[in-house]
Structure formats: structure tokens, C-alpha cells
């Protein structure tokens, strides 16, 4: 029981912070902080699939878009019917409910994508998940109920510091506990050697699919946070470049390292903004070039990412 205390303290600290920073919710640094939170959720959830289980998914933006569209569609509809609901204290539980529903929708999609992963490995799986993400985008473009190319607009802005970092804490907590559970050992075993794992009695099929489902669930939640913050969602936002962005975070942090993903997500969110002044000097936006070069050089020099599969904190302290 003692171990839960740390997490609860973090949650409490997050809400205390929430009331402190609320007044600055339109400031630039606040925004970076918020993006960092959403990126942490994305990176940590993808890490469960790509890092821990060793499957290579390139369709995380697809799951994100499903979750984002479902939860934002729900709150938008509700907002149009009875805007009064969103004035009072009820807005938080409603948003939480919508986020979870979005997450579940994404998880169902994750289940459908997880199934082919039973047969496919490595590069083939990568391209199938990439294709899946694109298919979702094309479908969203064709659904008039969510605006098609015009996007889903008029989403009430319910994303706040507290909500985002509650999601971060919940995601990190879940993934951390999963990795350290029997189920998590099974996932690691699948990554290291699928044949041996299955010989040791690990249900590899179930392990892989559950990794996909859980990863997709949290990606969907991140999508909801993202959409409600921007108040507009367009399908174009979720093209495969978005998936690559998340992959870069996971790879930089280290495959299988939760703290690595967190650090990398924060680092890459900040660096993206910190490099902006460079544009004043060069007159050209070199950020994506730097991004891609970083990826190549990192793979050549530190193929396991900055942290490898190690964690920043000792297992005992948080277990």
C-alpha cells in the first residue's frame, strides 16, 4: 500500500499546481508544458507497444485521431444541446467520461490492428500499422458528421493543466505497473524471443494484442486532450508525420524505458520551441532537418536510445 502513496502524492501535487498555474493558461510556457504532457502520454503508451513488446507500430496517430474524434464529438454534441452543463463542476466528470469513451474506441481499433500483428513481424507490421493509420485518416475525411475536410470545430476547451497531468500520471502508473507485473514480463519475453517465450508458456498472441489495446487506449485519451485544447480537429493533423514524431520520442528515450520516454517527450517538445529563434537567423525553418538528422545520428551512435531499457528511478522506490 505504501507504494501507492507516491502516486497519490503526485496526483495531489498536480492539482495543487493546477490552481497555481490556472491564471497563466494562455501563456506560452504553459502551452509548452501542456504539449509536453500530451506527448508524454503518447510516447509512454507507444513505448508499451514498440519498446516493451518489441512490435513496431507506425500508426499511433491513427489511434490518437480515433480517440480525439470520438471524445471531442461527444462533448461538442453535448455542448451544443446544453451548454449549461459545462459551466458548473460537472464539466470535469463529463470530460473524463468522454476521454475514457474515446480511449475505449481507440482500444477497439487497437484490438483490430493487434490481430494482424499475430502473423506479421518487424517491417511488415510497421507498414501495415502505417497503412492502418492512413486508412483511418481517409475515413475521417469521408465522414460528414465530423466535418470531413472542414474538420470538427466548436469543441469546448476543457483541457487544463490538472486534466492533462492527471492523464500523464495515470498513464505512467499503468504502464509502469504493467511492465512490472507478470503480464509485463510476458511482454518483455515476447520482445526478446517470441519462440522461447511461447515455449515457456507465455501466450504470445494475448500479450501482443493486449499491448496494442492498452497503447491505443492511452493514445486515444491523448487525442481527446489534444482536440479539446485546440478546439478544432482536422484529419490532416493525424498523418503519418504525427506517428513519426511519437516514434522519435520513444526511440530517443530508449526502447522499453518509461522514464526515457518521459524525458524524451519533454525534451523534444521543448527543443521544437527552443529552436524557433534559429529561424530568425537562417530565414528558413531547419527544425525538421535537425530532427531527422538527430534521428539518424542517434541510431548510428546510440542505437538503444539515450536510456536503453534502464529507468531513471530504482525499481524498488516506485514498485
Amino acid at each position: 500500500m505504501k507504494s501507492s502513496a507516491g502516486w497519490l502524492a503526485a496526483l495531489a501535487a498536480c492539482w495543487v499546481m493546477h490552481f497555481f498555474v490556472q491564471d497563466y493558461s494562455r501563456s506560452y510556457y504553459f502551452l509548452i508544458f501542456l504539449y509536453a504532457g500530451i506527448n508524454i502520454v503518447l510516447a509512454v503508451s507507444l513505448n508499451l507497444v514498440n519498446g516493451v513488446t518489441g512490435q513496431f507500430s507506425m500508426g499511433h496517430a491513427g489511434f490518437m485521431s480515433i480517440g480525439g474524434y470520438v471524445s471531442c464529438y461527444l462533448i461538442t454534441q453535448l455542448f451544443q444541446r446544453s451548454p449549461a452543463l459545462f459551466e458548473g463542476p460537472l464539466s470535469m466528470p463529463i470530460f473524463a467520461g468522454a476521454l475514457v469513451l474515446g480511449g475505449i474506441a481507440a482500444a477497439i481499433a487497437g484490438y483490430l490492428v493487434g490481430l494482424p500483428s499475430l502473423r506479421l513481424k518487424g517491417d511488415y507490421l510497421a507498414i501495415v500499422t502505417l497503412g492502418f493509420g492512413e486508412i483511418i485518416r481517409v475515413i475521417l475525411l469521408n465522414v460528414d458528421a465530423v466535418g470531413g475536410a472542414r474538420g470538427l470545430g466548436g469543441i469546448p476547451n476543457l483541457t487544463s493543466f490538472g486534466v492533462v497531468y492527471t492523464c500523464v500520471i495515470v498513464t505512467v502508473f499503468c504502464v509502469w505497473r504493467i511492465i512490472r507485473s507478470a503480464q509485463g514480463r510476458a511482454l518483455l519475453a515476447v520482445r526478446e524471443d517470441e519462440i522461447a517465450a511461447s515455449a515457456m508458456g507465455v501466450n504470445t498472441t494475448r500479450s501482443k494484442v493486449s499491448a496494442f489495446v492498452i497503447g491505443a487506449f492511452f493514445a486515444g485519451i491523448a487525442g481527446g486532450l489534444f482536440g479539446s485544447w485546440l478546439t478544432v480537429l482536422t484529419p490532416q493533423t493525424f498523418d503519418f508525420n504525427k506517428s513519426f514524431e511519437i516514434i522519435i520520442m520513444v526511440v530517443l528515450g530508449g526502447m522499453g524505458s518509461v522514464s526515457g520516454s518521459i524525458v524524451a517527450a519533454i525534451f523534444l517538445t521543448i527543443i521544437r520551441e527552443a529552436l524557433r529563434p534559429l529561424q530568425d537567423i537562417t530565414k528558413l525553418d531547419f527544425r525538421m532537418i535537425i530532427y531527422s538528422l538527430m534521428l539518424i545520428v542517434l541510431m548510428l551512435t546510440k542505437p538503444r536510445g539515450l536510456f536503453g531499457s534502464r529507468e531513471l528511478v530504482k525499481e524498488k522506490e516506485l514498485a
Binding site: 513519426f244 525538421m288 541510431m299
Partner: peptide, 23 residues
């Protein structure tokens, strides 16, 4: 190196060529 690393490098090279091309 593991295959995934090569795949990521391939993505990196691709992004590099695209954005360098744009600029």
C-alpha cells in the same frame, strides 16, 4: 543492429530528404 533501428534510420533519411528538398 536490430532491424527496427534500420527502419527508423530509413524513416530519418526519408524525412531528411523531404524537408531538405522543401527548403
Amino acid at each position: 543492429a536490430p532491424r527496427i533501428n534500420v527502419l527508423i534510420t530509413a524513416v530519418g533519411v526519408s524525412l531528411f530528404l523531404e524537408f531538405a528538398g522543401q527548403l
